[in-house]
């Protein structure tokens, strides 16, 4: 790791202002989002950021000068840049000239361009996934897009799904834990073979997550309606609740009504970006036995308050 003073091009006695100016000047030049096509910009920017991290903090700078920390001791955590998103499948959102339509227009622009240059009948611009494909004109294989439907629990927990491709090959696709509906996975080199020894294109697999009978995902949280008995609702108790990670025990407080919502912290889906887990919300639903026995009937006949309270009182103000 290079000396931060050398990286920023300042003297060891530089003032804070000089350091800030030097960092800004270099960052403006090397920020990866201001150099979308330059892969080397990321490493350069990281080096500048790391140097600035030390020299812009008086305490770290003093410790570096005193030899207490070295230049590499300040690892900048790996991060993504806007360009990764802008060149991905969602990138059309901020594309100049509007959304999807501009890609249709563009086909016209290019066809026009080629017509003018020598009477070609124009190319086919059938791509519905802007931004992917081989770099430049390397004539590598074409990318291919598939759609794959996976069970809810496999997307939640992660797992391998074997698929058969249209050309007869089988492929084990690694579905990562916490895969959201609509996620696109990239399978390097699984697209169309390249010509004349060029590398094969990539395959893109769009994951469709099948709905689950009772786990209902909202963002990274999971909502479940949990049937409980009348006894559990009135007296409270511990019940087993299914979660995507397996069953857990839940304490139901005494006097819990239908509709009461309880939270199981950290039992939701994994957020792949923040690596944090959502929660599971359990909504109680009091369920009577299919056949009420005579004892229950007798008890209710003798239960005075049960005839006195009106659960529909609140409805009157809305009618």
């Amino acid at each position: 790791m290079s000396d931060p003073y050398t990286v920023l091009g300042v003297s060891r006695t530089a003032s804070d202002e000089e350091i800030r100016k030097a960092f800004r000047k270099l960052a403006k030049k090397h920020h990866p989002d201001l150099n979308p096509g330059d892969k080397a910009a990321e490493a350069k920017f990281k080096e500048i950021s790391q140097a600035n991290e030390i020299l812009s903090d008086p305490d770290k700078r003093r410790r570096f000068d005193a030899g207490e920390i070295d230049a590499s001791g300040q690892e900048v955590p790996p991060r993504g840049f806007y360009r990764d998103q802008a060149s991905g499948p969602g990138g059309f959102k901020y594309s100049r000239g509007g959304g999807h339509e501009s890609f249709v227009d563009m086909g016209d622009i290019f066809s026009e361009m080629f017509r003018q240059q020598g009477g070609s009948r124009g190319f086919s611009f059938g791509g519905e996934r802007p931004g992917f494909g081989g770099d430049g004109f390397d004539m590598g294989g074409m990318p291919v897009t598939y759609s794959l439907s996976v069970p809810f629990l496999m997307a939640a927990r992660g797992g391998k799904q074997r698929v058969t491709l249209p050309d007869g090959r089988t492929l084990d696709i690694d579905v990562p834990e916490g895969t959201a509906d609509g996620t696109t996975l990239r399978l390097k080199g699984q697209g169309m073979p390249g010509r004349e020894g060029k590398p094969a294109g990539d395959a893109y697999v769009e994951i469709r997550v099948q709905p689950h009978p009772f786990f209902e995902p909202r963002d990274n949280d999971i909502h479940v309606e949990l049937p409980v008995t009348l006894t559990e609702a009135v007296l409270g108790g511990r019940v087993k609740v299914p979660t995507v990670g397996g069953p857990v025990m839940l304490n139901i407080p005494a006097n819990s009504n239908t509709g009461k919502s309880l939270r199981l912290k950290g039992r939701g889906l994994l957020d792949r970006r923040t690596q944090q887990r959502g929660d599971q919300y359990v909504k109680l639903k009091v369920v009577l036995p299919d056949d009420a026995d005579d004892k229950l009937k007798e008890f209710l006949k003798a239960w005075e308050q049960g005839k006195a309270y009106d659960p529909r009182a609140a409805m009157e103000q809305f009618t």
Binding site: R83, S95, M106, P130, G131, G133, P143
Partner: peptide
């Protein structure tokens, strides 16, 4: 720049076909 890169990329893909 991203719009242009997207268009160039499409052009490259059309050429590759």
């Amino acid at each position: 720049v991203h719009t242009l890169r997207g268009q160039l990329d499409l052009l490259a893909r059309a050429l590759a076909e």
